[in-house]
Design a protein around this nucleic acid. Sequence first.
DNA 1: ATGTAAACGAGACGGTACGTCGTGTCTTGAA
DNA 2: TTCAAGACACGACGTACCGTCTCGTTTACAT
Lengths: 224, 224, 224, 224
Amino acid sequence: MQSRIPASRATGGRPRNAAADTAILAATREALVDLGWSKLTLGDVATRAGVAKTTLYRRWAGKNELVVDAVAELFDELRLPDRGSLAADIEGVVLQFAAILARPEAKSGLMAVVAESTRDDALRERIRASIVDRQKRLVLEGRARALTRGELPPEPDPATATRTIDLIFDVVAGAVVHRTLVSAEQADEDWVRDFTRLLLHGLTPLGGARGGANRPPQNPAGSV
Amino acid sequence: MQSRIPASRATGGRPRNAAADTAILAATREALVDLGWSKLTLGDVATRAGVAKTTLYRRWAGKNELVVDAVAELFDELRLPDRGSLAADIEGVVLQFAAILARPEAKSGLMAVVAESTRDDALRERIRASIVDRQKRLVLEGRARALTRGELPPEPDPATATRTIDLIFDVVAGAVVHRTLVSAEQADEDWVRDFTRLLLHGLTPLGGARGGANRPPQNPAGSV
Amino acid sequence: MQSRIPASRATGGRPRNAAADTAILAATREALVDLGWSKLTLGDVATRAGVAKTTLYRRWAGKNELVVDAVAELFDELRLPDRGSLAADIEGVVLQFAAILARPEAKSGLMAVVAESTRDDALRERIRASIVDRQKRLVLEGRARALTRGELPPEPDPATATRTIDLIFDVVAGAVVHRTLVSAEQADEDWVRDFTRLLLHGLTPLGGARGGANRPPQNPAGSV
Amino acid sequence: MQSRIPASRATGGRPRNAAADTAILAATREALVDLGWSKLTLGDVATRAGVAKTTLYRRWAGKNELVVDAVAELFDELRLPDRGSLAADIEGVVLQFAAILARPEAKSGLMAVVAESTRDDALRERIRASIVDRQKRLVLEGRARALTRGELPPEPDPATATRTIDLIFDVVAGAVVHRTLVSAEQADEDWVRDFTRLLLHGLTPLGGARGGANRPPQNPAGSV
DNA sequence: ATGTAAACGAGACGGTACGTCGTGTCTTGAA
DNA sequence: TTCAAGACACGACGTACCGTCTCGTTTACAT
């Protein structure tokens, strides 16, 4: 979680300027918006932050680590609202997630570091710790709340529960990311409602092709 | 679809060496495997292909365009098998997709160019044309086949049908990509079976928690 | 003297376009004026001449050879006028030489190929044959005319005569070139008159410091 | 005189490595000897000097400026010896000048930058300041010494004196350069003696064709 | 208050890759 | 066989960043 390089442990010496961290991360996000990941340079970030390049390298190992931290802060605001039902909870959290992903600094930065992480285990671990796990925890909380409400059956086997949670997480996060970045369409309220219905009921909600009268016509999921 | 820079004129002048294209794209994939997207250099690709750097720049505008074409060829083999049922068809095509994504040249290259495409509309269009649409067509074919089999109800409104197809595509592709790249886990047969069940039946298949006897106990979907 | 590559001796085949030579040399001089030697490119010359690069390389071995030929044509107009006295003849020919050197295509090209010739014996020989010897012949003619007029004593020893002619040639040509290119001043009529007087009478015309009354005050030579 | 690009600021930042300048200029002369001006590349010079290409570009604007500085150092050793008479002084200094010009790094480099300077006023000024003026000063000193000795008559008009000095300088420097580079012959002691005699006494030393007995027979000047 | 030690700004440094340009060769089809 | 056109292998260009380094200066804490 703590991805910055720690300061020297010796007592003496001038302490680090704490404001610099904030300024650097903000400058990084600003540069992501202006330039995107591939054109972002650490020299430029340092200049934007009003800091020497040395200071930056004293605290982060490189561009990837810096961008992970800068993007991770965007996900701090992610919360699981209690909207009364599982469907409403899912819609709420997915909308929040979509709103963050819609920001250009997230778009530019997140996928780039994920792409980098395919060849760098330490980087992937860092992303997992500071970004992904934070999201996955919401799935856990949501499931617990649904269990309490009786909306989902309890799963006695913990291994199966973990598998299911991982699956749901990949489906939810993957769908929103794909919609936003690949299809380049907004994950708006309509889409989220459709998605939630698909997630809860699937393509063939009644086990066959009997489109029931209880499904509103504007809902496409389940009637492909 | 045609992303290479076209040759200057129909007549006059030495024609382009057609074999060079093949060699360059193969060299690009090789370099993606060895170095990953961010460390891949066009000079190195040219050397691997036994070609001058200028030849490369004569045909592709830059690294992104080259990588898109190189990765796109990986998806040429993607086909929709006829396995007799909608569930089996989905499992088949998702497994194929997962197998391609598991290859390091796809992992490294695909997400990187998608990340780049967030700031480059032409690049996104190129990705859509040469990679994404090819995948989406499988969804269309699969739906048509399921309709023929009577596994899905017909959708009279074409706009709704399009929305649904887009949604399913984002869910399927997004889930596999997220599983493979972010969670960094293999999308193996077990996972694909779980995913397909979730896609078809949702989390609450019968509107409640009545897991049927026909579901094997190792299947977590629908019983969170 | 003939520095172009000869056409193939075989009878058959399309004959060379004779006008191309003229056009290429003119284009070379034009490019020398516009760009100078170091920025002149053979592709650009070919374009200016309305000729393919191949045609150019079929006739000249390279940039140096081409520029030598192009510059050599400038010296075709150099003639020894008969102005009635040795001094007047010298002034006449030096003024002509200076006028040619004042042209930008000569300035740019001549010294550059001379510089190149310090490392290329074939090039130096070509310069000697097509440019330098043509100039030196004027010295020979001028001396012959002066001998006829009785302005100079005959030199019985041919080796000594050659040495002297070489010396005079280096002094005359060197002085004009240095004035024009290094000092970057015009070799105008006043300068040529001063130079001729120095050449004929030296710094100490009467073997001492007795500046004669016959020298006009505006003449500096001999009264340093 | 100072042709290097100055360092950024007085205070702050790592200071420039002074030894690099020396190494770069020496490497430049070495490359001039090995390759000549036109084949000399800044990358090669940097490698020879054990320095990064960027370091080189940080200090010199380009090839021409670098070569001027490298060649200028060759002329540092040029001194006016006191050999007792004007003729002997001239011979001495001309021999020194010829010795420098005979070196391949001077041959290759000097004329090339002079050729370049015909299209670049700043370069010509730089050459003048760091090479030419240093030579011309010797003419001034030589004249002053000759005046003291009474070998030359004083010139009351300063403008005429300047004109004369410029003329003599162009004659001396031009003759040696032409002899060395164009005629490609050594300016050895014999030639220098002949040249000096011509400079002092001219072609017609006694106003006619009466070769005096005091001239040794091996001297051709004055008896053309 | 003074010494010590680290952080800091500035920027030079050795590298690597960039994307472009010029060279001289070649390969085509037309004349 | 020449010519126009232009692709090609090669290699240098001058620039931009990288991540490291070396300065002189500043800032806190321990003496």
